[in-house]
Design a protein around this nucleic acid. Sequence first.
DNA 1: TCGGTAAATTGGTAAAACCAATGCCTCGTT
DNA 2: AACGAGGCATTGGTTTTACCAATTTACCGA
Lengths: 260, 260
Amino acid sequence: MPQARLQVPRISDAIASSLERRILEGSLKPGDRLPPERELAADLGVSRPSLREAIQKLASKGMVQSRQGGGTYVTDRLESTFFDPWRDMLGAHPNLREDLLEFRRMLEGQAAEWAAERATDADLERLEKAFAALGRAFAENDLDQRSACDIAFHQAVSEASHNALIGHLAAAMLRLMQDNIRLNLGELRAVPGAADVLQNQHQALFDAIREHRPAAARAAAQTHIDFVQETLAQSLRSVARRESAARRLGTDFSSTPTID
Amino acid sequence: MPQARLQVPRISDAIASSLERRILEGSLKPGDRLPPERELAADLGVSRPSLREAIQKLASKGMVQSRQGGGTYVTDRLESTFFDPWRDMLGAHPNLREDLLEFRRMLEGQAAEWAAERATDADLERLEKAFAALGRAFAENDLDQRSACDIAFHQAVSEASHNALIGHLAAAMLRLMQDNIRLNLGELRAVPGAADVLQNQHQALFDAIREHRPAAARAAAQTHIDFVQETLAQSLRSVARRESAARRLGTDFSSTPTID
DNA sequence: TCGGTAAATTGGTAAAACCAATGCCTCGTT
DNA sequence: AACGAGGCATTGGTTTTACCAATTTACCGA
């Protein structure tokens, strides 16, 4: 008769667990492509069938998705559980944007503080790259590029906090606000000097993390968000004036308050 | 870039489906032993690795269980709550609990602070009720009742923060940790005086919110969580001793650190 | 410059072989 | 005859190798 005795550890379980851990820690982000099976198997020092069994296990849990000839990709199952319900609600209830902004202020402040405490050399390297890319994007003034780099930079900060929940929540939140961030950058472009101030704030945040000054990092992150919010509010007043003028001319386009 | 193309049907999926169907239909009953892999593979006209991938998939869903040299058996209990991806993550990756606890400390601290700033009379009334119910539950020493009231109280605090995201996240998080909270209360019951200290902390939190003292509220909430964490860590050491003794007697059960 | 074809890449499947744990079965001992 | 120890067949676990099929990429010609 079948008895529940001590089991020999299956190597496929160990592999699956290891990959899961990488996903949780953020070194494998949703949308990322896993290395080819042959290469990954060699890296892990296991055979391809064993690796495949592990991948199948993750696939059955919905954490990865494989396409023959294409590759294996990490899905966003973990992030979607928290924030998907909010996506459509944000459109319906604009007052939620305040809550979201407030929440983001807390989340990114905490992420910055922890990042300053815990950032490794690898984290700093990633931050350095993201910051450099952000600088280039600002110089080129390409809106899509700028919003993508902006998100990537803030995401890098969140990952440097070394808290899986912060990392995933920040990723989900930033994705949720992606459209708004792009719109807001467009608005802020009209504000003289805003680009330089923004980049200075990014610089301050990056420096604080690099120099491991948690309080300064938190302050920098929150100052950044406060600035965006405040400047945007001012800018929107003039937008509202332009729109009310446009409306009188028959042009109808709805402007929703946006967030970066 | 990854595209959603039409997928070729994977043979391992077909096998898993077929076996699943047999189990659900009853032709493979719980406790039954599956034919040997080699034989079953030949019967189904597939290779053994493909069959193994299918079996691993079922095993990860908890429907079958394999023992090297013994065979593969249909599990007796079929249903499990595998719907929340974070839930099984928590079971599989203990270090994630640290992250969750850390995150909870931040979230509930902020919730308490904002609640102290913004609580309305209606909020205070709800808090009053929840606090009273918590006191009664502590007096009756009913574990389920206590964990339910504990959660309800913390939930009430989060809702008094008047931030929809905080409320939603706290609810999701508390639900995620519900089982742990119940277990932890059971552990803490063995610690002399813990119940009084806990209730005093709840009282301090409630008072700070009622008297609109944000900093005190945040401190009270975080002190509460720190206390639970610390006391629990101490308590778990004795649990570990008990379990290691049990293991020597052949009882095999994994002890996972729990959180309240 | 565009489009299509061929080659490289990559996941999917198969076969064979060996290892390790399990369990049955036989043989030897008492 | 009963019991126990050891051996052997069974069976899941892992690896290696090979080939197939879908996709992607790069190159070349129109």
